[in-house]
């Protein structure tokens, strides 16, 4: 029974990481921009949500507003930051430097405005543990598992079957030809950033609701998302989802059997080993790619 509980806890953690990776993968897989400010931009929306929910607004409304903010900020970052740099003809390293600058800036401004202390959502009903058989699980945990599964499947279907998805795949494989066909790259990539950031926001909000919000939460969030995406094979939604779940289960297992302090260290070492063995990630064959 203990093993089953670890498995379930791992699935919950893994689902949240899966959401983190899903948003990052959408952006990285289509644009190849290493959006290292991913978590930081999401954190702006998260802090807004936390502060208005602590001042008495219903948490559901707050999250909806936050989702809209994340969506808007995602699009804004592309329009104001990455798109001008691309037009200036800057290389990928320089674009990464800009992203790093944005992340550093946000990480300094957020604790300046909201203070460095952790903030906690007050959500007794969502965090109340219920028992299914002998497995302890909270409504928030179930929501995380469902959200990761539903959003992954939806995104996969949209990319595979919709017109927008087809245009997205077109400009990913050949920018010039795509623009000849009349696909407006700016609009599509802008929406990719918006949707990716919104998906990431859902993951980070769920993670913060069951623990707390601190101004450094973005660093690990981005890093884990990037590790999962690269470990799973950039652009492969299945690969990163599998890695995310394995990641969550491994981390919960080590936390129980070794210690929470060493759990992250061991999982990070496991990632380093994985990319040494499979430098292009778990799923690399193009036929399995979805983007």
């Amino acid at each position: 029974m203990r093993y089953l509980q670890i498995l379930v806890n791992g699935l919950v953690t893994g689902s949240i990481y899966g959401l983190a990776a899903l948003g990052f993968n959408l952006i990285y897989g289509t644009t190849k921009i290493f959006h290292v400010a991913y978590g930081s931009v999401i954190m702006i929306a998260l802090y807004f949500v936390t502060s208005i929910s602590l001042s008495g607004t219903s948490v559901y409304w707050a999250v909806l507003v936050g989702l809209a903010i994340a969506f808007a900020l995602g699009g804004l970052v592309y329009t104001v930051l990455y798109s001008p740099l691309e037009r200036l003809g800057r290389n990928r390293t320089t674009i990464f430097i800009a992203a790093l600058g944005l992340a550093t800036l946000i990480e300094a401004v957020i604790p300046w405005v909201y203070g460095p202390q952790p903030l906690t959502f007050n959500l007794p009903s969502l965090n109340t543990v219920v028992f299914i058989g002998k497995i302890a699980i909270s409504p928030l945990d179930i929501a995380a598992i469902v959200a990761a599964l539903v959003l992954s499947l939806t995104l996969w279907a949209v990319i595979k079957w919709s017109v927008v998805g087809r245009q997205l795949r077109a400009i990913t494989s050949n920018v010039e030809l795509g623009s000849v066909m009349g696909i407006r790259r700016g609009v599509i990539i802008g929406s990719v950033f918006a949707v990716g950031t919104a998906i990431g926001f859902i993951g980070l909000t769920m993670q913060s609701m069951s623990s707390s919000v601190t101004p450094v939460v973005d660093v690990t969030y981005t890093l884990i998302a990037a590790m999962i995406v690269l470990g799973g094979g950039a652009g492969s939604l299945v690969g990163s989802y599998m890695i995310a779940l394995a990641w969550g289960i491994l981390q919960n297992g080590i936390t129980l059997w070794v210690s929470a302090d060493w759990a992250t260290v061991i999982v990070y070492l496991a990632f380093l080993t994985l990319i040494l063995v499979r430098p292009l990630g778990l799923m690399t064959s193009t036929s399995r790619r979805m983007l």
């Binding site: 001008p84 740099l85 800009a98 800036l105 300094a108 401004v109 300046w112």
Partner: peptide
């Protein structure tokens, strides 16, 4: 000044480098 100014200045410098001073 606030300790956070270091981060703000670092971030702005990185952005300036990316845009104007490769």
């Amino acid at each position: 000044w606030s300790v956070y100014m270091t981060g703000v200045i670092t971030g702005v410098l990185l952005l300036l480098v990316a845009f104007f001073l490769p």
